[in-house]
Design a protein around this nucleic acid. Structure first.
Lengths: 170, 170
DNA sequence: TGTTCCATGTAAACTGTTACATGATTAT
DNA sequence: ATAATCATGTAACAGTTTACATGGAACA
């Protein structure tokens, strides 16, 4: 998946591994992120396969290794893009603990859920803050994934409140 | 995480690796699943750490290796349960392709989204069918995670329809 | 008697993170 | 001077899936 993300971003223009990390932080990190430890080797692999090419550049006095997508890389990317979206069941680790919350006294469970809400809220607000910029600067698809993120986090918070209500009303 | 799931299920009673796989298929697979290749080694690890113990049994003429949670295992499980839920950003692989859908002609993108909806719908309906049984047989927390699953898949379908509407209205 | 399901297990491969190492540039 | 940031990279580890291997029981 990471390799396709790299190809996808290179479709917009050349960039380095460091640039990609920043791009992902700004735009995809709420549904896909990667560390340098996986980014740099992925670029090397893609270059070895001939899907991207690199050149060394000094930009604003800083050394950079800029990568470009090749024609072969564009083919690989488009072929992937044309395949159906495969919906793999997501790992939702936060639900695991909720699943077993019955082994905790009710007051403890309530506290756990309240703390969980407090943890998710700032992530939601971060996304909301980025919304106006993204709406202007990107296309409808990328803006749409942001709306997914915002409404998903809202959904999680609402769901937590619903469960809390059920727990406190008895 | 898998080790805690094993401990959690063993809190309800003894079971084998095979049993756990079936349990997960029925109850947690929409937010957490594991293959036999990870389940059996996990049981072995837990036994080596003294958190569970095993005995070999012939049940209905079938050989089984039944595991029980030990007192040490119960402590480990409860200690984990008492820690706050950590909300790690989830990998939502299906959004990756949507993010780059602008590189496809609009009609192709529309088809992709329609196919995606057709893929998610049966998963949703499976969960909905299991709802009455789960509501009766489990506690509020486990039922609540099911409601999460149902409403999450509904949300995904609604979001896809919204994006489709945006694409077709112009 | 052969096929399917039950049940356990291992080895290789894949994907990724964390921690570390290096060195240049910019700001204080 | 020195601390922070920019920028690249590697090695060790972690968790997982896939594919394979085994053998018994149930069924047709």
């Amino acid at each position: 998946m990471l390799e396709y993300i790299i190809l996808g971003f290179l479709m917009y223009g050349d960039m380095s591994g460091y640039d990609l990390k920043q791009c992902m932080s700004k735009s995809t990190s709420y549904f896909f992120d990667a560390s340098f430890g996986s980014i740099y080797p992925a670029f090397k692999r893609l270059e070895a396969k001939g899907e991207i090419s690199s050149r060394e550049v000094v930009d604003c006095g800083k050394y950079k290794k800029l990568y470009s997508i090749t024609d072969a890389g564009k083919s690989v990317f488009r072929e992937w893009l044309e395949q159906p979206i495969e919906f793999a069941k997501t790992k939702l680790d936060h639900l695991v603990k909720v699943f077993f919350l019955g082994f905790l006294p009710k007051e403890k469970a309530i506290e756990t859920l309240q703390a969980f809400i407090k943890e998710v809220e700032p992530v939601l607000h971060e996304l909301i803050e980025s919304q106006p910029k993204i709406k202007l600067k990107t296309d409808i698809y990328q803006y749409s994934t942001l709306l997914y993120g915002i409404n998903y986090y809202r959904f999680i918070i609402d769901w937590s409140h619903d469960l809390l209500k059920e727990l406190t009303k008895r």
